[in-house]
């Protein structure tokens, strides 16, 4: 009995340590954003957020370019989400329900793209963007981010459609519905959770994307938050509190969105990963 109680205490402590490690850096981001200069550089730094200084968030948005950055990130992320899921659904459907020439090759290509680093592709893509006049535009970033997240989106959706009994489509086919109608009316509602998962994955991919954004966009007003925040690192002009406030505002929606959709994302990711 005593051993059991000891084991229980040890486990509670272990869980708390893990949670502390998981949460601390973001907590520290918040504490730093809400500290005065005196607190930051004192012998003993402040360990709790000074909630009276909450105005720093308003200031960070109002004064700097942060609001514009976040808005650009939002545009890119939503655009990527819509485009990649819009293209991924029919691709996943084709891979799941049809046999056609080139299917094996296409599947291998989709898996292969998963290991291409963005940094490798940035040079030829730069040339491509220049030719099609896509440099320095949010549209260009939406297109390239969609192309990079599309394979995983399509593979996850293929897996989801695989799980739907084919018989459900028979009714639609008996009514003479076209394949596209069958997809949108019968399959799409049934795979809604997977669609949600892929939407979140695509949103994140674009919200976090840095390499293409920093290389293809030059106008400061068009920069997304990933580039703006990365520029803070190693730069000394901006007060650290403002930097952390902006970074926190960039992190919060991502974490909140993720936590809301977590259930779907995890099963989607593992399903997609299993295929890989």
């Amino acid at each position: 009995m005593r051993r059991l109680r000891f084991g229980l205490t040890a486990r509670i402590v272990a869980v708390l340590v893990v949670l502390g490690i998981a949460v601390f850096p973001l907590y520290w981001m918040l504490v730093t954003a809400l500290s005065s200069n005196g607190d930051l550089f004192a012998e003993r730094p402040r360990l709790t957020p000074d909630l009276g200084r909450f105005g720093i968030f308003v200031d960070a948005l109002a004064e700097g370019k942060a609001a514009g950055w976040l808005l650009n990130s939002l545009v890119i992320a939503v655009g990527t989400m819509v485009l990649s899921v819009g293209l991924g659904i029919p691709l996943g459907y084709a891979l799941s329900r049809f046999s056609f020439r080139g299917k094996a090759v296409l599947t291998v290509v989709l898996l292969f793209t998963q290991m291409l680093p963005e940094a490798l592709m940035v040079v030829p893509l730069f040339a491509l963007f220049r030719r099609f006049d896509l440099l320095d535009s949010l549209t260009g970033l939406v297109l390239v981010n969609s192309a990079f997240v599309l394979p995983i989106v399509a593979l996850i959706l293929k897996g989801a459609i695989d799980g739907i009994p084919k018989e459900l489509e028979e009714a639609g086919r008996a009514d003479g519905a076209r394949p596209f109608t069958i997809l949108t009316r019968i399959n799409v509602p049934l795979i809604a959770p997977s669609i949600a998962a892929t939407a979140v994955i695509a949103f994140f991919h674009a919200w976090n994307e840095y390499v293409f954004a920093v290389t293809f966009v030059f106008t400061p007003e068009l920069q997304p938050a990933s580039v703006g925040i990365a520029n803070f690192i190693g730069e000394l002009g901006t007060p650290i509190q403002t930097v952390m406030a902006v970074a926190f505002l960039f992190t919060l929606p991502a974490v909140a969105f993720y936590l809301l959709a977590q259930k779907y994302v995890v099963s989607g990711m593992t399903a997609g990963a299993v295929k890989g």
């Binding site: 973001l26 990933s226 991502a254 974490v255």
Partner: peptide, 14 residues
């Protein structure tokens, strides 16, 4: 799951 959800850029910064 919070660390996994946090954007890489913000992680590098903090």
């Amino acid at each position: 799951t919070i660390p996994w959800a946090a954007p890489g850029i913000a992680v590098a910064l903090i």
